[in-house]
Design a protein around this nucleic acid. Sequence first.
DNA 1: GTCTATAACTGGATAGAC
DNA 2: GTCTATCCAGTTATAGAC
Lengths: 223, 223
Amino acid sequence: MSLPQEESRIDRRTAILDAAEEQFAAYGYDGVTLRAIAKKAGVDLALPNYYFGPKRDLFDAVLMRRAEILNAARLAQLDECIASSNGTPSVENIIRAFLRPLLTGEHVSEQGWKNYYALIAYVNNSPEWGGRLMTQFFDPVIQKFIDALRLAMPEVEARDIYWAYHFLSGALTLTFAQTGRLDTLSGGLCRSDDLTDAFEHMVRFTTAGFETFRSGQKKRRPR
Amino acid sequence: MSLPQEESRIDRRTAILDAAEEQFAAYGYDGVTLRAIAKKAGVDLALPNYYFGPKRDLFDAVLMRRAEILNAARLAQLDECIASSNGTPSVENIIRAFLRPLLTGEHVSEQGWKNYYALIAYVNNSPEWGGRLMTQFFDPVIQKFIDALRLAMPEVEARDIYWAYHFLSGALTLTFAQTGRLDTLSGGLCRSDDLTDAFEHMVRFTTAGFETFRSGQKKRRPR
DNA sequence: GTCTATAACTGGATAGAC
DNA sequence: GTCTATCCAGTTATAGAC
């Protein structure tokens, strides 16, 4: 229904991907019906299947669309970061290279990117999807960031760096999820949709987290 | 199905909660049918509704059951931590008090707790559920941990502490999710189901993250 | 308390007209 | 390419027998 003139002029494939992205991000794969997607996109119920095949393939298509853009942007930032540091960048600058693409240009202003990030939060934390899809779409690029981090901290064991990346990933994706919990918990002091504030804090927190593994051995519990 | 003799002797309410917990954790609220739950629990399809009312109330009941146990254990640890430090505990010990209940006794060995933690990962990162349920079931106790952290770092702004807790929460819940992604990414160097290893790393990483906010002003991006 | 049977409905998918 | 009409499997929930 509705949006008869304007919406039907723009590409229907894009409209379907946008609507699916928004709905999947908000309610998860099984919480969304093709009927809801078609309605949101302003297209006929039969069109999602016509363009993308079964529901599962539509989900993959949504995920892939922006993953490629994000991966390219991150690689460019990483290359620049390495080049401008004569081969051994700082941990902080690697983390900034990892996060900066999320903050540039349309990524902050466009609702589509916000929806996509919330979808990543869903996928990354899903036992059902997380292992397969994050590995497939993102880990080739993540591996290059890990390589750079190993170069930046050659004295740190690889295991420690993988764990630290894991925590960074968790912190980042919870921020993506936009649940509003932090806003309530902090009594309004923190606004989880203020991405600039979120990322400045995240850079400080996670840089310190990575750097702490420089100081050798595991402590045995005090108390 | 089946398990006719042994299973039907144990409390059916518990069997339903256990089955629902496992299924919801693996597939999310909408990915699970009452039929699947009843079958897994070895009970008739009509019983979940008989004991817990509609599906949504069953979901809440699953979440509440162990939240109360966890909250009580965390509060006990926090009290002990504060008492044994003459009122100003260290950041590290507060974080240990927060995490230790997840590692004690049955929590590591029982599959039920593992399923519950994965369910928390799902809820915490869900725009649909996260805001409401985490606030309702966990934040009263979290607020006390925040109070303790403020005492431990009186020179740090409240905002910074809330952000840091947010990142800790994200790191923790991604670990809960047990997606297997980290195992693949690290080529087997890290095992995400090794909770002891996960938590020793998490304590180090997040303690350093919190402590870094002691050093005053926000930096403006270098590079 | 438990189970059978069924009501009432929603889901993905598509055949076939336009 | 698009839309209508429909198939039918699978859904929650419950009434009523045991």
